[in-house]
Simulated scan of single mutants.
Amino acid sequence: MRKAEHQPAGVTGVPANSGIALRLDSVQKQYGSGPATLTALNNVSLALYQGSFTAIMGPSGSGKSTLLHLASGLDKPTRGSVHVGSTDISQLSGDRLTQFRRDHVGFIFQAYNLLPTLSVEQNITLPLILGGKSADNAWLEYLTNAVGIGALLNRRPAELSGGQQQRVAIARALISHPEVVFADEPTGALDSRSARAVLDLLWHLARELNQTIVMVTHDPVVAAASQRVIFLADGQLAGYRDGGTAAEISDFMTGLEA
């Protein structure tokens, strides 16, 4: 197990010309003030490269959700900065931040959050519609075929399995060519077979489409599908592992929880 403080928590083995898709510099997040101040994240720095597939793990209360919220622009750090691509999103606010998230950040959640009255195609292109943009039909066709739902575009969510609905959610997250996709327990509502298929798909997207994926999970089996696992404990980086089995990841997690 390597300690995260010794080098940036980006993926090893990337080409020299790969850019950094996500960077956190000395990020701190506090809630409250005075004696009641709670530090949810404390002096966290990391860099993730384009095309990397990274899992974030840690015990309950370790700061996983806080890290995801800050990195994706859903919340702002108390101190430090967050860069998505070349943009310091910690300096954006209001409509500018909302527009940036819509155009440059993708989200995949445990709940698929599909609108039941819309078709698969309409659900996928909804972020573009909300931004006043038209879908690139060639990209839509390529993307939906890549995630295995090209023949389902006219169906409604209720006509799909859980695994198919999550594939629709993944396509929706990718439709705007985001710089980073954030996945929060993306397989939590799926059976083991569908979960494995979704994880294989995320791996494919990182390797073949150079898509950067950051996934928060509590499941060592899910984390083992990623290229790198970053561990948090008490709001700080506690280490990272490149590769490794679910059992090895679980053993390290047990040490953090002790």
Rank of each mutant, 00 (worst) to 15 (best):
P157I: 01
T245K: 07
L199C: 05
N154M: 01
Q236P: 03
F182V: 08
G131I: 00
K29D: 02
T245Y: 10
A183R: 13
T66Q: 11
D95N: 11
A47C: 10
A238L: 05
M215D: 11
A146V: 02
P220S: 06
L237C: 09
T37E: 14
L115V: 14
V222L: 11
Y49Q: 10
G63C: 09
G51D: 06
S45F: 06
G235Y: 03
G148W: 00
E257W: 06
E248Q: 11
Q165V: 00
K64V: 08
L74D: 02
H104S: 12
I170V: 15
Y31P: 01
D191N: 03
R167C: 10
H204T: 04
A135Q: 09
T117I: 04
R241N: 13
R2H: 12
H83V: 00
V221Y: 15
Y112H: 15
A16I: 04
A233I: 01
S86R: 15
S226K: 07
L143V: 09
F231R: 08
Y142E: 15
T254M: 12
P77S: 04
V229P: 11
P35L: 00
G85A: 05
L209F: 12
L24D: 05
A138T: 12
A9W: 08
A151I: 00
V105T: 04
T66F: 10
Y31G: 03
T12D: 14
P116V: 00
E179K: 12
L97D: 10
L209E: 14
K76F: 03
L160F: 11
R101P: 00
I149C: 14
L70W: 01
A4T: 12
V84K: 07
